[in-house]
Design a protein around this nucleic acid. Sequence first.
DNA 1: GAATCAATAAGGGAAACCCACTTTTCTTTT
DNA 2: AAAAGAAAAGTGGGTTTCCCTTATTGATTC
Lengths: 223, 223
Amino acid sequence: MKKKKAVFIVDDHPIMRDGISQLIDQQPDLEVCGSASSAPEALNALNGLAPDLLLVDISLSGMNGIDLIKIVKKRSPRLPALILSMHSEDLYAERAIRAGAKGYVMKHASSDTLLAAIRRVVEGRMYLSPEMTEKLLEKAAGGNLPGNESPVDRLSDRELEIFKLIGQGLRPQRIAEELLLSIKTVETYYSRIKQKLNIKDADELLRMAIAWHPDLEETKGRS
Amino acid sequence: MKKKKAVFIVDDHPIMRDGISQLIDQQPDLEVCGSASSAPEALNALNGLAPDLLLVDISLSGMNGIDLIKIVKKRSPRLPALILSMHSEDLYAERAIRAGAKGYVMKHASSDTLLAAIRRVVEGRMYLSPEMTEKLLEKAAGGNLPGNESPVDRLSDRELEIFKLIGQGLRPQRIAEELLLSIKTVETYYSRIKQKLNIKDADELLRMAIAWHPDLEETKGRS
DNA sequence: GAATCAATAAGGGAAACCCACTTTTCTTTT
DNA sequence: AAAAGAAAAGTGGGTTTCCCTTATTGATTC
């Protein structure tokens, strides 16, 4: 009999942690070797362990899951990580992968999907939902950039400034006043930002700008 | 041997659902008699069942957990319900109780706490964390702590729901679609919320709704 | 039983927003 | 020097929001 693969869980919901542990421990080929409820706790516990996989909730209080993965990557580049998230994929999956995660599973997914993703990542492959996989492939094919950059990095300084203000809930008129610009200019920026970020309408732009806000600042792609 | 108490679970995260099922089924005195991922599904499934407890996630997509409880209360007034939530208690516990729930457990709580709450509610008693219990008692006694109240508490459940969607960057039209309301109704909520929160225009409302983001609230330092 | 509150909805006019184009002026890059 | 990019602004027209007022229905309260 082959040795079971060891999974280490990081999630700040104890109930979720226990539930997933139970689920994994029931599998013949997997077992849980430990868990933590925060990034520092995880980093500490990992010192004495050699798991085959890190399963990390993206929304930890304090340091988020993506930052945790970045740190772990530096210390143990070979340890694969799988992000578990309650957010929809299109908001964070790309950033998770860029940060070094080997996969991204939504909490809306089924348990079977989670187990499939775990097994796949343990084997050294990657896991993303079919939809997301296609989206990222398309992007990689179409976009001639090295793949290392966040789309937001492609915004000019001025564009980013407006993007941030949008995320704070300022409407075009207010932004114009704030930056001493004509509303028309602000509108031009709207369409340029939409174009660069591949966003279809102003509504989505607003949501994106809000989602991309303060606490996630450190998570942004960096070269 | 006494008969096991039957729990019905409503949660739109399958992984969570399976995890909790596992947890409950392991107990000698409890068992899961069914589960659903949405309010309509739950209402449908409950027709043929007579569980001893409803365990409901507060943040279901579509209809939320509190609304579900309100409906169930009308159909089966004796069926006790326990709210499970990832949000901090002071945001929703009071509303949940008012809607007819017998208890409120955070996903940040331990599995033991959840089990204790389940047993307690099944026995016909109520469950709230000690802190929340005290808070509510104090409030009931009339002792108003002035610094502790947010004007957001004065919003009705429905108003709060709209307020939250505004904070996620949804525009009136989208909100109307999401909640199956007329835009006119949504507009009415806008002005009622503005009135209650003492906000002068829609721009400020947007900024306020974004700033008041519950998920981030929990992470912030608290007094 | 009257009053208040919550939820839903409609009307209408003014204002703001959205979007596709076009333009000018500077810089920077090739 | 030509090309490309960034910043700023305008035209014009269709769509949406904003805000105020009024209304109905059902619950809760007094």
